[in-house]
Simulated scan of single mutants.
Amino acid sequence: MDSQHPPLETLQDIKRMMERSTRFISLSGWSGISAGVCALGGAWAAHSRIDRFLHPAVGRNYYHSDGGALLLKDLMLIAAITFAAAFISAFIFTWSRSRRSGTPMWDTTVQRLAWNTILPMVVGGIVLLRAIELGYFTLIAPGCLIFYGLALVNASKYTLGEIRYLGYGQLILGIINLWVVGGGLYFWAAGFGILHILYGAIMWWKYERKS
């Protein structure tokens, strides 16, 4: 029986080498957790701004007659800060793991991963900006979830396969949110916040715990 182990180990080594050449496998579970925490913080900030807008007695010194435009500006600023914080924290954790594992942060595989992730998100961003211009604000949250889910599923063939399940979760939440008008912020927090934290914890437990 022992004589069979070396060939098996050789096959496993070959498999790992092939994965390294075709997939970026240094995504950190902490990246998902940090992105989820940032998203929950952004959702809380957005909720507080919306609450001040809906209760004039509380927010009358902040929101004036042009309160709707000011609220939209605040929400877009919160979204931009949240995205930047999530991206930077995720990059730091992924860079740290990539450095420990000796995996390059920018090669052909990473370029393919980046392109397949960015393309659906850029197209989605254009669609959502047009939706804002037309006043279809109820489509913003589900649209973010749906296009982000498509980006994750599209990019999953160039990184850890489990990321496609995170994408499926985003798609499901986004589609449900299309029919749950007024609950966009809660779905947004569930998708970008809670699902990211769960995904990150599972990935850390599966791939990083022993190291």
Score class of each variant (00 low, 15 high):
A46K: 12
K15R: 14
N177A: 14
S96R: 08
F24Q: 14
L129I: 08
F87P: 05
I175C: 10
E19W: 10
D51E: 11
I92N: 04
G68C: 06
G59F: 02
L128G: 09
Y136N: 15
K73G: 07
G41N: 12
G161C: 07
L27M: 12
A190T: 01
L8E: 05
A69H: 10
P104G: 12
R60E: 10
W106S: 13
S28R: 02
M1K: 13
L160R: 14
L119H: 08
W44D: 02
T22D: 11
G183C: 06
I81K: 07
L27T: 00
G161S: 05
A141T: 04
L178K: 03
L70C: 13
G191Y: 01
S101V: 06
K15I: 03
R20T: 05
R20Y: 01
Q111A: 05
L119P: 06
Y165R: 02
G29T: 00
I202D: 04
Y165A: 04
G161Q: 10
G68R: 15
R99N: 04
L198F: 00
Y207A: 05
I175L: 09
G42M: 11
Y207F: 11
L77C: 12
T82Y: 02
I78N: 08
W44N: 03
R60G: 13
L40Q: 09
R60T: 15
L75N: 06
S34L: 09
A131K: 10
L173S: 13
V180I: 07
L195G: 01
I140L: 10
S48C: 11
Y168A: 07
I163K: 14
N116A: 05
V110K: 11
G68L: 09
A84L: 10
G42H: 06
A84E: 06
T159A: 09
R52A: 14
A46P: 04
T108N: 13
G125A: 13
D2C: 05
A79W: 03
H47W: 15
H196A: 06
Y168N: 11
E9F: 14
V153R: 01
S34Q: 06
L119T: 13
R49H: 14
G143E: 09
L134Y: 15
P104F: 04
D107V: 03
W44A: 09
W204T: 08
P120V: 09
A141C: 06
Q111L: 03
L185T: 05
L134N: 14
V37A: 14
K15V: 00
Y207I: 02
R100N: 09
D66P: 03
A39Y: 08
I194F: 08
I78V: 01
L198M: 03
A131D: 10
F147D: 00
S101Q: 12
L128K: 07
L27D: 07
L145K: 09
F87L: 11
M105G: 15
Y168H: 10
S28A: 04
W179P: 00
S3R: 13
A201R: 14
G42I: 05
W95H: 09
M121F: 14
L70I: 12
V181W: 04
A201P: 08
A57P: 01
V180W: 12
L139Q: 15
L129R: 10
A43T: 02
R20K: 13
Y63H: 12
D2G: 11
P7E: 01
T103V: 04
Q12Y: 08
G182I: 01
G36F: 02
F93N: 04
